[in-house]
Write a protein that binds this DNA or RNA. Structure first.
Length: 799
RNA sequence: GCCCGGGUGGCGGAAUUGGUAUACGCAAAGGACUUAAAAUCCUUGGCCUUCAAAAGAGGCUUGUGGGUUCGAGUCCCACCCCGGGCACCA
């Protein structure tokens, strides 16, 4: 290896940071581009190759747009609060503050080492009091609007760690840290009312340039379900049980009702006779872990409540069961059991010996077998609807039941649980006063600082902040009497749901950001990050943006106009990279050994950005060869005019044209191919001209910024190559020779080469084909029935 | 189970609105240089053919089977396989 990457790359990396050449100017007459990466958790592991992939892609775009004449905002920060850092701190017995500082220093130097062109003056850190002050402020804005509220709600509870866990900490019903079973417990928690924004969260997706699967992912997560809500009166009690169904036409087939074990009306429904049995059942359900109830075997258990309900459609009496397959957190928490047309109801009916009444049958079925028919199409078989299609029957039944119910829509999405009983997060700015009750901390008193007198960060079942008397005991902002602070902290997803709004004005002490600067930079034009954030971060960020829009604090209601995901980089063995398999590739080592430019270009060359693909050190070496060959090519550059200028002009223009096109479509792998094609051809030339070589170096600059800067310097051009204009092609590339494919019945028979400066009719082309010795021998005996000529491309002879 | 993606050489992957399938790279084989190796450079390269000495010629080929079309990797239908997401959502 002749190219001294180590020396060149470390030199320029340092110089670029010192010279601040990537600074984004707030006031500039240029049009703007805001190109953003999903900021990382600064874990103890350092950046991995997956980060580098997405970050390189956005870096290339940022550099490209700068050269195209845009003022580019390309910032980075650290999602420093939250579980990854906290867990690492606990594991290594350190203070999370120090761990965070250490890790950030590593991440920062790694970013600089691979030449990411961030504006380091805008670096943010969510664990910094100057940042989380505004996370707390955001909470207060939602609180004031009634969009933040406290309620008792089921949460994941780790039976080993004695704490609430975030959803992302629960893996297959078990705690990720101690592997204990996770169960559901009813605990007081803070929520953001994201459900109030459902309609706009769905509708807003339409205008976004996002991957379709991500949009569909959000829509499915929101889970709109249109149906009918019906009240079932109880026989002996003055209680109506509301039931939600998407299939009201099946109501003649209801043979039981099933109510969730947690349902608040349950107490009133249970008869004295059944009381003990129901209590035993509830005890059993309570002891079921999350694993058993939600992800384990779908066995359906239940017990008769002792009450009977009346089917409002046919006045039949049906038993009310308590059943563990009915969920309290969806719809009404009561299900009408139609075993004939629902798989779960069928299973429950079988296990509890309940009758099965068929309401309709699919068209292909004459006689029902002993199984459910959940089909959407068919003919009714119960009077008075016999022979009627399901849609009509549904309308009739809905009309008949209008006194008992109405059309209703339910959603799977629930309010966003934002509180955590953890140390490493922003304290929730609420004070509890024995006189005034729940009082928000006045904005002027922000930030509520995270106490630093906590010795033991380990979660113990109560929030660690409760240990600090200094923190907990305070004054009520209203009556000045003694009061106590909320000890829960904000989920780290709250921090990351607005961080993109801070980059336009990261040091503002008076506002979360100056409206003028927000207007200048927002919204984000291109956002790149992993697809795993589809229903978390990306949904939360859209929600918060809409809230701030409604508060008239910003003038746009979608934060990210264009979104792209990077795929997962697998190990060389095609498995997910993990310590367990010993297949982890460390970007530092690759940069050290082969150079950052090689690492960047290789990761772009691997394949389409969004695709998962395995690492290959051999292919990486192939890209390193490209770097070497470029380094060698520079020796051919002559300051004088060279003979083969025309050829060089042609290949360089083609490179510029193709790379530009591919960049616009984010096809980075094809850009790298174009460089290889260029080098293959340039090597055949005996000399290269300064004029065209310069253009080559400019196109190379976003991809291999170090090599390009060095080559630019050796041309004795003005520093920096990254502040130059993107090269234009002088004229449209014209192919000298027109190639026309000759087919017979669609099969290739030859290729004609004609001067491209004139156009031809099908008859002219046919004549040329007949005169071509190779082709004529194949077509001379054939009777041509039809000629199809696609101008300048193909002529197909049908015989 | 439901919802998304994908199936193209030995491998990663290219292929404008349907118009020369396999660009570019890796690996491989042969050769040059070398005492030797590495590195580098040159050449070959989908598969098949008791067609051919060879240049070549012909046939087949984008998971499988059908269809539309002058022409299908690309469009339509059915099926198989792989990856991802959601999952007792009434």
């Amino acid at each position: 290896m002749n190219y001294p990457h180590q020396k060149i790359e470390t030199y320029w990396a340092k110089k670029w940071v010192q010279d601040k050449i990537y600074r984004a100017k707030d006031s500039s007459s240029k049009p703007k581009q805001y190109i953003l990466d999903m900021f990382p958790y600064p874990s103890g592991e350092g950046l991995h190759v997956g980060h580098i992939e997405g970050y390189t892609a956005s870096d290339i775009l940022a550099r490209y747009f700068r050269m195209k004449g845009y003022e580019v905002l390309h910032p980075i920060g650290w999602d420093a609060f939250g579980l990854p850092t906290e867990n690492f701190a606990i594991k290594t017995k350190q203070d999370p503050h120090q761990v965070t500082q250490k890790n950030i220093a590593i991440f920062r130097s790694q970013c600089q080492r691979v030449g990411l062109s961030y504006d380091w003056d805008r670096e943010i850190n969510t664990a910094d009091k100057d940042y989380y002050k505004w996370s707390q402020w955001l909470f207060l804005q939602l609180y004031k609007k009634g969009l933040a509220y406290k309620a008792k709600a089921p949460a994941n509870w780790c039976t080993g760690c004695l704490t609430v866990l975030a959803n992302e900490q629960v893996i297959n019903g078990r705690c990720e840290r101690c592997d204990s079973l996770v169960e559901i417990r009813n605990i007081e928690q803070w929520f953001f009312k994201i459900t109030a924004y459902i309609d706009r969260l769905v509708k807003g997706l339409e205008k976004l340039d996002w991957p379709q699967r991500t949009k569909i992912g959000q829509i499915n997560w929101i889970g709109e379900s249109q149906g009918f809500e019906i009240n079932f009166p109880l026989k002996d009690k003055k209680i109506n049980l509301p039931v939600f169904t998407t299939r009201p036409e099946t109501i003649p087939g209801v043979t039981f009702l099933a109510i969730a074990p947690e349902h608040p009306l349950l107490e009133e429904i249970v008869s004295d006779k059944q009381l003990i049995q129901v209590k035993n059942f509830l005890e059993k359900v309570k002891n079921k872990t999350l694993l058993e109830r939600k992800t384990g075997e779908k066995k359906k258990e239940g017990i008769f409540s002792g009450s009977w309900a009346i089917n409002p459609f046919n006045k039949k009496e049906i038993p009310v069961f308590v059943a563990d397959y009915v969920l309290m957190d969806y719809a009404t928490g009561v299900v009408m059991g139609v075993p004939a047309h629902d798989k779960r109801d069928f299973q429950f009916a079988k296990e509890n010996n309940l009758p099965i009444t068929y309401v309709f049958l699919p068209d292909s079925i004459k006689k029902p077998e002993d199984k459910p028919y959940p089909d959407e199409e068919g003919k009714m078989i119960v009077s008075p609807f016999k022979g009627m299609d399901l849609k009509t029957a549904r309308q009739k039944i809905e009309a008949k039941l209008s006194k008992f119910g109405k059309k209703t829509t339910y959603f799977k999405l629930q309010d966003w649980l934002i509180s955590r009983e953890r140390y490493w997060g922003a304290p929730i700015p609420i004070i509890y006063c024995p006189k005034c009750g729940q009082v928000p901390v006045p904005e002027k008193d922000l930030p509520v600082l995270l106490p630093d007198d906590i010795k033991d960060f380990r979660p113990k079942g109560i929030p660690p902040l409760a240990q600090s008397k200094k923190f907990v005991n305070t004054q009520c902002p209203q009556c000045q009497g003694p009061a106590q602070r909320e000890t829960k902290t904000l989920d780290t997803f709250v921090d990351s749901a607005w961080y993109f709004l801070r980059f336009p004005d990261p040091k503002n002490k008076k506002q979360f950001a100056d409206p003028k600067k927000l207007k200048r930079w927002m919204p984000v034009d291109i956002y790149i990050g992993g697809a795993e954030h589809t229903v978390g971060h990306l949904l939360y960020s859209r929600f918060i943006t809409k809230v701030l829009y409604d508060l008239k604090l910003i003038d746009f209601d979608e934060p990210f106009l264009k979104l792209r995901h990077q795929g997962m980089i697998l190990g060389e063995d095609n498995r997910k990279m993990s310590k367990r398999w010993g297949n982890v590739i460390r970007p530092d080592e690759v940069a050290q050994k082969f150079g950052a430019d090689t690492l960047r270009m290789y990761e772009m060359f691997m394949g389409p950005l969004e695709q998962s693909k395995p690492w290959s050190t051999r292919s990486l070496i192939g890209v390193r060869r490209l770097i070497e060959r470029i380094w060698k090519l520079k020796d051919k550059v002559k300051t004088k005019v060279v003979k083969e200028d025309e050829k060089e002009k042609e290949i360089t223009q083609k490179l510029i044209f193709n790379v530009t096109q591919y960049l616009e479509k984010e096809k980075f792998n094809l850009c790298v191919s174009e460089f290889m094609k260029y080098v293959n051809q340039a090597e055949e030339l005996s000399a290269l001209s300064k004029k065209w070589w310069e253009k080559f170096v400019l196109v190379l600059a976003p991809f291999a910024p170090f090599l390009a800067e060095e080559l630019w310097k050796q041309l004795k051009n003005k520093y920096s190559v990254h502040q130059q204009k993107w090269p234009q092609i002088e004229e449209k590339i014209k192919e000298e020779i027109l190639k026309i494919v000759v087919q017979v019945n669609g099969k290739l028979r030859g290729v004609l080469q004609l001067p491209s400066n004139k156009s031809y009719s099908d008859q002219e082309i046919l004549k040329v084909a007949q005169n071509d010795p190779k082709i004529s021998s194949k077509i001379k005996d054939l009777k041509i029935k039809k000629v199809i000529y696609v101008p300048r491309k193909v002529i197909n002879l049908v015989v």
